[in-house]
Amino acid sequence: MGETQGHGHQEGNGHAQGSKYGMVIDLDKCTGCGACMVACMAENNVPTKPDETNKLDTITWMRVFKLSNGKAFPEAETCYLPRPCMHCGGKHDAGHSPCVSVCPATATDYSYKTGIVSQIYTRCFGCRYCMGACPYKARYFNWWDPKFPADMKEYLSPDVSVRMRGIVEKCSFCFHRYQRAMDRAFYEGRELEEHEYQTACTQACPAGAITFGDLNNERHMVHKVVNDKHEGHAVLQGRKPFRLLEELDTNPKVYYLSARDWVVKAGNASLRETSPADKKPSGGHH
């Protein structure tokens, strides 16, 4: 597998550079409909609970957050931010993702061929170090054995292994789709095309807010968007792609776009202005 990926040269970290799958989410297009969340759950056999009112326990590989600029009408603004696993590459894409670094069981690893952070359910023993290490809270713990309503069992995907109680799970960038697509490309002796491997959330988004592909492949749209260059022209109209908590050097592969300054600042702690309430009073005590 992975042999037809053509581009291979050595990077500074000593690993041959293969593909680097990533995502660009246009927050100005996202309407917060939640179709990506539903598609993700259906695609990846994510279980539901008999009582879903407690959302803290709900497993959502893709979760849409609601952000607000905190201002009163008429200046109030809302933004919806879909958050999958960021598939962090760590500094220089050396594979030192926060979760991979702390896993004592090698239940999660970084693929230098695809840039995807895996989660192997049968290897995980549920210590949850990775959950503590993940700054994006993209990992979820199975507190119970999965329960699927009777008829739903017939809809489970055979390509995705169903998890059990006591282990951690997270977004895999629908890696099973990559496996299927690569299988066919390999058999036909050709390279993988961009449209052949797309995540379920990307395809489900009615607003077309999500773009997915190989960040290292110049022909893929994600590469063009992140580098703001499509057929020699800038495509972002002044918008700059940003990533969540970039100051942590986690090197995520999920980029966001927004023309609104407050949204960009909300995603990046170092850019946030300190609110007056947080400011320490100057001067000494009398």
Binding site: M1, G2, D109, S111, K113, T114, D159, V160, S161, F175
Partner: peptide, 9 residues
């Protein structure tokens, strides 16, 4: 070695 996601799903 190959990555885990080569043979796991």
């Amino acid at each position: 070695q190959d990555a885990c996601f080569v043979c796991h799903k």
